[in-house]
Structures are given as structure tokens and as C-alpha cells.
Write a protein that binds this DNA or RNA. Structure first.
Lengths: 329, 329
DNA sequence: GCCTGTTCTGACAACGTTGTCCATCTCCGG
DNA sequence: CCGGAGATGGACAACGTTGTCAGAACAGGC
């Protein structure tokens, strides 16, 4: 910038004014400065600029795994909102590891991001208190923060499962299985709650071998399903607690002699092309990302009330066939 | 930092030394400084640090759409490599719009990222020359840069299609259709070339109505397919030029009286569960991301030879059934 | 006691911008 | 011709770090 000023024969500040299109520069000198800029190939250093202005125009996004289609959609929505506010996006995957999440979050804070959108892993986010007090706007998505009262955008997990399970009950099922993710994951616990509530609301007892919570690896899901389908009181229908469970369940059930009804949480591509097509409780990933990001920027612009907001997005039951199979005799 | 120094009764530089774990500080003073840091909740400002050291420890990733599963996998791989080198990742989606790509790239450069991984949109990337000359390491992925000789990591698109089409020919097909993306997209053009070469190699003529290039919206794919399947010489097999085409083709073909053989470029989840299961030419998205990022960091560490590298990753034909259907009589 | 070398420590000037404030210049009305 | 307003331009000090260098403190050898 100094070089540009020298070449154009003006002061440093004048160059700054031209670069920022501030008023108070005659067209004549502006042109001279512009020529010098072009000649020297000058590019403003935004790092320095942002150091001075104390706004970095960037936000950090921490989620479980960018490669997961659900988070990929969420991520894109956050990006779009950020762009519309002129901000750039730092992204990082926590892989469901609280330490890695903390590392990422603190790295973002050290870079002085204006705000943070976080899909929290782990159950204790008090480490964020000093950062939030220091002014980093923070919005949690998909799950609430642990031991911290902060903005959060959620899906109606329990309600969605209730609806899905009620759907199975309405089609005559009484013995319904549930396979969920690790119980420490908030969404997984909520979904289990929805399952229990729906069964209770219909006056149905839940046998302990009908539900199981744990890692959603294909092997474990396969084993869990096998044990639900054998025994004296085999289930006639299954509610799959997430995407990965649903896919594995479809694989296992397609090799099953009796048809087993299935409803899955979270929609996925091609669900309608399978045989039978898979009924799902669909959540709106881009919608969650959008809400979270919008809330974040409202905070940054000082347009949100001081107390933490809690947004719960509705889900939608998409009936496609697999949930409408009658119970095998 | 000044406050910390004052509170600990030491000089500014000593605090800096403690924070950076530089040698030459007595344990005694180090402890005093640390206490002051904790008391004041001090966090080093990395923006300022990086302004001074002239290394931002961050790289920019520009791709078409983070929400696309292919790029999501690529993105995650880049992130992992970046993390292992202690760098943070800026992400942005170009939506296949050259102007938006340029905006993103220049914004990243203005932030002085150390390097750039770009899935190029458009056909002219000369705007990057000054940035590259200024020292921003740049690696292109999936497609080469337009009018610019730079590092690039590609998939063997033409070879993959040749293999897929040869597979169809081996199963007795002679009239094979091809539906590809916009011809300005390098990968689309390469795949068309592969199709032509495979047909020519087998001594087969290609009727003009057997192939078509354009936007891969469901409507257009549907229309293209309809016209290939009608007429005096209907195709008996189809090669789908990408993911989205394959999915639409599966939808259309499932409603078709005669079975039509199908091979798609790029694998997708559940391809094995469809009926018939879909044969694909699989490319390795994480592998591409990894290669590109590794190449980038080798450049940054000065370990790569000066001339631009060109890496071509192999593809893999995964036979599942849809490509083995015999031609309808 | 003095010199030498070895630790430590801190002042100071960068890094590349922008905000503040003052100096100049031009133009107009009185 | 003068005073003042309004435009234009530039000097300087931040922003929060780190690299350089020189000084202070301390020990050891003669």
C-alpha cells in the first residue's frame, strides 16, 4: 500500500480511501491511485484490515462430519446465509469427539471469528463461557449445548418419532422395535423418548429386548435386528433411529422371509426407489442450517433479544410403503 | 497481552515467549506469567500473530457444492490433511458459476490463505496468475484449470467410460446411449470422448440421437432418455454420465416394459439395493481430496519440483447387475 | 577483582491496514 | 478582499502480535 501511495504520489490514507470507496477523493486522484494499484498488482490484505477494524467477517462451523449428507446440507445452508452477510466460512469436523470439537472451536476463536455455529459433541460446553463473554456469538444446532444456556436450533425429535411409531401402530403393529444411536447423543435420547411415549400413549408395553441404543455400525445394527426378530415375541415393525440404521435395516430386511414394516428417522436419496419404498420422518437439514445462521447474524447485528433463543423445527412424515406393511400373522 | 505482562510484572516479549513455549524463560517467571494469563482469561489473537509471521496456517477450498456427496467426501479428505498440517480450512461453494468462484478465490487470497484447492468452474483461470506469482500455492481438483498451467488432480474419466461402455458391449449391446453434463465441463467432455472411443474401438457407429450433453436436470434427462428409447433404432443400454443422471435414469427405467442395461459414472449409496443393482464406474472422491491436499502441502513445504504436477487417479468398474442385462430382442 | 561467556529479559520496530485529526486548497457570499 | 464552509489530502497512532538486538544478571576461570 505504501508502494502504491508512493507511485501515485499520494498519502497512505488516500489509497485506503480509494480501495474502500470512501468519499472525498477527486476522480482525478482516484484514477491515478487505481492505475498504481493495477500496475503493482496490489491486493488489500484483509487480515490486517480485520485486525484493525476488529471484525473478521468470518464464522466458524463445527459439525460431526461434512461428508454426512445431513450435515452437508446443513453446511451449505450456513454457507449461503454467511455469504449473504459478506462473511466467509471456516469449517471443521469433530468426528463426534469432544476434544477435537474443543480444539476446533478454540482455534476458530483464536482467529477471532465473529460467530460460531456448532453441532455439539460431548456433554459439557462450559469451556465456551469465556469466549461467549468475550463476544463470540454462538449458536448450537441439532443438539443443545451441555451445561450452558445458549442459542440452539433443534428438530422435534421426540415428536417425529411419536408420529412415526403411531403410524406403525395405526397399521396394526403392536410389537415395534427401536434401534437408536449412543444414548449420550441428545437426539438419540430424544428419539428413544418419543418411541416410549408413543407406545405408552397406545397403551402398549415395551419389552426390553425391543429397543437398543449404541453405535450405529452395520454389524451392531445387524445383530440387534437379528435378536429382535427371533425369540418368543418377535417384532413385526422397526423404527430406525437414524439414517445409517435405516440403510442397514433395509439391507437386512430385504433378505427376510416375512415382510417387516419400517419407518426411519431422516430422509435419504432413493428411499422412494427401494422395494418397498421407505417411509421416513424427514427433518429439514438446510432449514436448520439456515435458521441457525440467521439467528447468528441477528445476534451479530444486535437485533436479537438478550436471552438465549430456542428454535424447534417441525418434521414431516413421508409415507412411502414400508411403514404401511401389515404385521405378519 | 500488555495487560498480562503488566500483571505478571514482566515485559511483553516474555509473555510471548511463554505463550509460544519458546525456550529461555525460568520456570519461576513462566509460572507467574501463566497465572496472569489464567486470571485474565487471555487468548492469543492468531490474526495478529499471523499478520506478523506472514503465514496464516489456513487453506481455502472452493468446490461446486458442499452438499453434493461427491464433493462432501472430497472436502472431508482435504480437511483431514489440512488438520494434520495444523491448518484451518475456509470452504466455499461456487455453484458452477465462474464469477462466484472468482469472488471466493479472491476473498480467500485477500485473507492471505497459504494455499488453495479449487474445483474450477468456467474455462479461464488466468485471473489467478498474479495470486500464484504472489506465492499462493494452488492445486486444482477434478478438472484442470482453464488457460493456466498449474497443479491438478484428475480422475481417469475417459478411461472409466471406455471400460464401462466396453462392459456393455461385452454383454451384447450394440446400440448404447450416453447422457452427459454440459460440454463446457471438462469431466463431461472427457467422458463423452471415452464413450466415442469405446464405440469406435468396437467398430460401432454412433447415431447422433444416441448421445446428448446438457444440464442434468431430471426433466432434461427424462426427455433425452425417452427419445433414445423410441424411434427406429432404440438403444438397448445407457451409460449415465454422472450421478444425477444415473438416479433419474433408474427412476425412468424402472417404469419401462423392456429391461434396459445401465452403467453410471460415480458410485452412490444404495446402488446395490436397487433392483436391478446398479453397475457403476466408481471414482475415489476422498482419494482425490487427499492427493490434492497432500500435493498442496508438499508445495508449501517446498518439497515439490517446480513444474506443475498432473496426477490422474484410476477408477474402478463395480459390476452389480444393471450392466449385465442382455439386450432386449 | 576482572574478564568472559551464558542465560534471561525487555525495548523497539515491524507486519498492513484504518480512524482521528489537522492542514491545506478552493470556492463562494458579503 | 476577507471569512468561512466544504472539500480534499496526509501524518500519526493505533490494532496484537513476533523478530531483532542489546542490556542485565549471574556464574566461572584467571
Amino acid at each position: 500500500m505504501k508502494d502504491v501511495a508512493a507511485r501515485a504520489g499520494v498519502g497512505l490514507k488516500t489509497v485506503s480511501r480509494v480501495v474502500n470507496e470512501e468519499p472525498g477523493v477527486t476522480p482525478d486522484t482516484a484514477a491515478r491511485v487505481q492505475a498504481a494499484i493495477d500496475a503493482l498488482g496490489f491486493r488489500r490484505n484483509d487480515s490486517a484490515r480485520l485486525l484493525r477494524t476488529r471484525r473478521t467477517a468470518s464464522v466458524g462451523l463445527v459439525l460431526e462430519d461434512v461428508a454426512d449428507p445431513f450435515y452437508a446440507g446443513l453446511s451449505r445452508a450456513v454457507e449461503d446465509v454467511a455469504r449473504s452477510h459478506g462473511a466467509l466460512l471456516f469449517t471443521g469436523s469433530s468426528a463426534e469427539d469432544p476434544r477435537r470439537e474443543q480444539e476446533l472451536v478454540l482455534a476458530f476463536c483464536a482467529r477471532r471469528v465473529d460467530g460460531l455455529v456448532v453441532v455439539p459433541a460431548g456433554d459439557d460446553h462450559r469451556y465456551l463461557t469465556p469466549e461467549i463473554d468475550a463476544g463470540v456469538a454462538t449458536v448450537f444446532v441439532d443438539r443443545p449445548a451441555g451445561r450452558l444456556n445458549a442459542d440452539v436450533v433443534l428438530t422435534d425429535n421426540a415428536g417425529g418419532v411419536r408420529e412415526g411409531v403411531a403410524h406403525l401402530i395405526a397399521h396394526g403393529h403392536r410389537r415395534i422395535g427401536f434401534i437408536g444411536d449412543l444414548p449420550v447423543i441428545h437426539t438419540a435420547a430424544e428419539r428413544l423418548r418419543g418411541y416410549r411415549e408413543a407406545m405408552a400413549a397406545a397403551g402398549l408395553q415395551v419389552a426390553p429386548e425391543w429397543y437398543t441404543m449404541g453405535p450405529t455400525t452395520p454389524d451392531r445394527v445387524r445383530a440387534a435386528l437379528a435378536s429382535m426378530l427371533s425369540g418368543p415375541e418377535p417384532v413385526t415393525a422397526l423404527f430406525a433411529g437414524n439414517n445409517r440404521v435405516t440403510v442397514t435395516a433395509v439391507r437386512v430386511l430385504s433378505g427376510q422371509p416375512r415382510p417387516i414394516a419400517l419407518v426411519g428417522f431422516d430422509d435419504f436419496e432413493l428411499a422412494d426407489l427401494l422395494d418397498p419404498a421407505v417411509t421416513v420422518v424427514a427433518q429439514d437439514a438446510p432449514g436448520m442450517g439456515r435458521s441457525a445462521a440467521q439467528l447468528l447474524f441477528r445476534r451479530l447485528d444486535g437485533l436479537a433479544p438478550p436471552e438465549p433463543a430456542r428454535v424447534v423445527l417441525p418434521v414431516r412424515l413421508i409415507t412411502r410403503g414400508s411403514g404401511e406393511l401389515p404385521p405378519a400373522p
